[in-house]
Design a protein around this nucleic acid. Sequence first.
RNA 1: GGCGGCGUAGCCAAGCGGCUAAGGCACUGGUCUGCAAAACCAUGAUUCAGCGGUUCAAAUCCGCUCGCCGCCUCCA
Length: 489
Amino acid sequence: MSVKIYNTITRTKELLKPIEPGHVKLYVCGITSYDYCHIGHARSALAFDMIVRYLRYRGYKVTYIRNFTDIDDKIIKRAAEQNTTTEELANRFIDEFYVDMDKLGVERPDMEPKATEHIQEMIDLISELIAKNMAYPAGGDVYYSVNSFPGYGKLSGRNLEDMQAGARISVNENKANPMDFVLWKASKTGEPSWESPWGPGRPGWHIECSAMSRKYLGDTFDIHGGGQDLIFPHHENELAQSEGANDKPFVNMWIHHGFVTIRDEKMSKSLGNFLTIRDILEHYHPEVLRFFIFSTQYRNPLDFSEAAMQDAMTGLDRLYQCVAAVERLVENCSDSAAPVASGNDRKKLDSMEERFQKAMDNDFNTALAQGILFETVKILNKILRQLPEIPARVDHDLLISTTATMKKLASIMGLLQEDANEYLAAKKAAMLADINISEEEIQNLIQERNQAREAKDWASSDAIRDRLLEQGIELKDGPEGTGWTVKRS
RNA sequence: GGCGGCGUAGCCAAGCGGCUAAGGCACUGGUCUGCAAAACCAUGAUUCAGCGGUUCAAAUCCGCUCGCCGCCUCCA
């Protein structure tokens, strides 16, 4: 096993070596639940879904934890606006999150702890930090003293002087150092609060991940993940809290994925340029979104556009069409017929899984992995085209087994999960629903056209075809009659 | 201002010092077809933002310049 992963803290690709051999412990920062999720959240969930699936495929046991932040300023604010409790609001959007994740086929992590259910663990952790003089209460709040932790800045590659020089942090008279961050926040009247040694309040954002990861994965674990925007301050602060309290390394590897952008700008709530997952799924099959997201390696920015989604859909269709064509093969084959697959083709197909692994072992290079799938499809199509009426058994078996392997590998990205014929039929039906013509009308016109064709009345025949094309229906004359597909405008 | 990333064919995107610079989409020519479509075959970067350096060898390493993006405030 030789999975290499880019580690943010060392800025190099490193071999994955789980602390407990064969068992990877992974903690990922989940959502703050106060609104519907956008494509950026989808990328995060899908990236780690893929990583977990791949590691399991590679034989690792994986313990995957992803938290919910269900108490914070934004939730309080939004709940007040909607005249509801933070609990109701947070739970409502957790439910909505699951609706989206289920549609996307994202597997559930092994555990999904909520911040509000771990207040005691956070209070304990804060108390330890205070006892070690690494944190101090002030005015009902508790702050972490960044000066007490010499390694502060090592994850994000900053140092305290630089940070203070460009600080855009509002002055807070309770803080000893402007870079100190809050561990416990005194609650204002009407805000949700929990009892603590420092008075009623609620936890700061960073402490929850330190407390929950320690509870479920221990002081030191293998991988901590999240979006690149979490590197600073969130992960830097977690690291300071955990290593400060535990006096042990916090995590061995940090994985940070890139953003989804729109017109090359980060998609975010604050910029207002975001599209929700459900917006997208209204128009596209979930696997199209997955295909799109995995068409770029997870660390690189990914620019969303309709054109890119169209490309993704075309590409996914190509994969499904190939699978459907292989599945249409009948059992009837011959032991004596000469095989059409060349030695080179066979070699290429036989090495598919190995090449796929090599791509994925190299920091989960899904873009390359997709390329390998397409190379495979090309060869499969070539063989299919050359196949005689009664194919040689070796060819038949090669096609069937390669397709099975291809589906298995694609499943790591959550692709090709549907029955190919059903996928294509469903797509056709969905697209048909978008245009103003019924299947019956199409069939009638095809019949009319075929009569014209038989009479070699090409003018009428073409007129019908053009008319259908204008309405978005593309005809295909094949040996088994005339088929049709819906063409997207 | 500090820190980090990116710039590869019309578009998207691999490539991490050395075989012909993957793959997808689009385009063009061919096979097939009455003509098309689909599929297959073929074609496209003497070149990897620019300049300079290291090396027997660089898209890949180093330096500088230009352009874009992100973090430094909540953010996946």
